[in-house]
Design a protein around this nucleic acid. Structure first.
Lengths: 241, 241
DNA sequence: GAGTGGTCTAGACCACTGG
DNA sequence: CAGTGGTCTAGACCACTCC
């Protein structure tokens, strides 16, 4: 029965999502019963259930035992993806992202950095500082520290134009799978105000994140400072415990 | 085979989580093969798979086709739960949360608020303003707007001491299931500086969130302003697409 | 080749809802 | 009562890895 590349359950998910987006299924509508859906799509019960179950976990549907499965209210805002690169983030907002490379250098891991990135003190790290722009307007200053062992020769790539994540994925096979960190606020310094072209005092949104591979191996430490007046970070839409 | 209250797959998840926490399974360890685990626990393949699959989705394990399933690195930081109340958030940090109720009033929905909360303009809403303290130190100002129809008589409860979420859950059966919104940064105003007891200029972390029931019905709009020097908001640990 | 994870089937049973 | 979602079984097949 499987005609496409994707697993059957993934195709079924796509099909349901399509029906919702196309307006054939509206919020609070009841889906056909499982057995009906199985007949229509010619799949087994468990496969159909997996598709529905995953959509429930993703918050698009919700099930009421003994009654049926219903379409949840649509998400008003794009879901937060903390693994979204600045480039992709801006693309979703309909803006063109660009960079000015302020600094790019190799240096040796301090004890603290070594601990966070799980390397030995003195191991080579790459430190990049980039001014990020959205439609040519300065929006953020990003400081990224990478394990050089994972991306040897990365300084030879064009770090001005493209997405760093794309370089890591396409040239080094590094697929970031998880991230953790904090967000806070701080006053802008003089240097920053100059780079942003703003007057002091000004408030910045500050994020500190560590990114990991699927195995849990740390890859990078990212420190970003966003203009508080120009950037709102989307918060996740999440289901309760 | 099912002895407990929980579904079998949930019990299997607990069992694996227990083994990891107890140190019997360490990060990067390989789990026994599926068939082995099925024999040991006397469950069918699909049930075992569901348990493992959900743990993979939650980031605790990761699977490599043709090789095996492995234990991922532990999460260093508590996962973000945007539905966490301030009270619970502080408890996780080992601090005691308290409140000073600055204002609590009923008013009629404006057109904008009505749109966000999906009620009619003029419908009754509750507006609460609270100064939130952690170990008696002012940390945040929260402004919450609730649909009064969902929590009639809420002003009679003690809104100073307890968690608002607890009141909604225990007295009105309102279980918040999802949240969405943005985080940004702004300069503190004079009033705020006075409430916080800080000097100007100062940067605040600003969040705006709407919370929903499982059905997608909106319940509250929350606006919070945190002291940037005293509060870091945990960012989620999430898996890539 | 044997062993692994990942997908899929065609049934079954249960608790819950509604008429 | 019949219909629903939710769980569970005991198999099967495939692609992949390692030997």
């Amino acid at each position: 029965m499987n005609t496409g590349q994707l697993p059957l359950y993934a195709q079924l998910k796509e099909s349901i999502i399509h029906d919702i987006r196309a307006g054939q299924l509206k919020p609070q509508d009841k889906l056909p019963s499982h057995s009906e859906l199985c007949d229509v799509h010619n799949v087994s019960y468990m496969t159909m259930r997996r598709a529905i179950n995953e959509l429930v976990n993703e918050g698009m549907l919700y099930g009421v035992p003994g009654k049926g499965v219903y379409v949840a209210e649509p998400k008003e805002v794009a879901e937060m993806d903390p693994l979204l690169s600045f480039t992709e983030d801006m693309a979703r907002r309909g803006k063109v992202a660009s960079s000015r490379l302020l600094s790019a250098e190799l240096y040796e891991a301090s004890t603290i950095m070594a601990q966070v990135l799980k390397v030995q003190p003195g191991d080579p790290l790459v430190h990049l500082v980039r001014l990020r722009l959205a439609d040519r307007m300065p929006v953020a200053i990003q400081r990224v520290t990478l394990r050089y062992a994972l991306c040897p020769g990365i300084l030879d790539y064009d770090l001005e134009s493209g997405s760093l994540y794309a370089i890591l994925r396409e040239n080094y096979g590094l697929e970031l799978a998880a991230t953790e960190g904090t967000a806070s606020a701080a006053l802008a310094g003089e240097e920053e105000a100059e780079l942003f072209g703003i007057e002091l005092p000004a408030a910045l949104l500050v994020t500190e994140q560590v990114s990991y591979l699927g195995s849990g191996e740390p890859v990078e430490v990212a420190h970003a400072r966003y203009r508080g007046d120009r950037y709102g970070m989307p918060l996740p839409r999440v289901r309760g415990q």
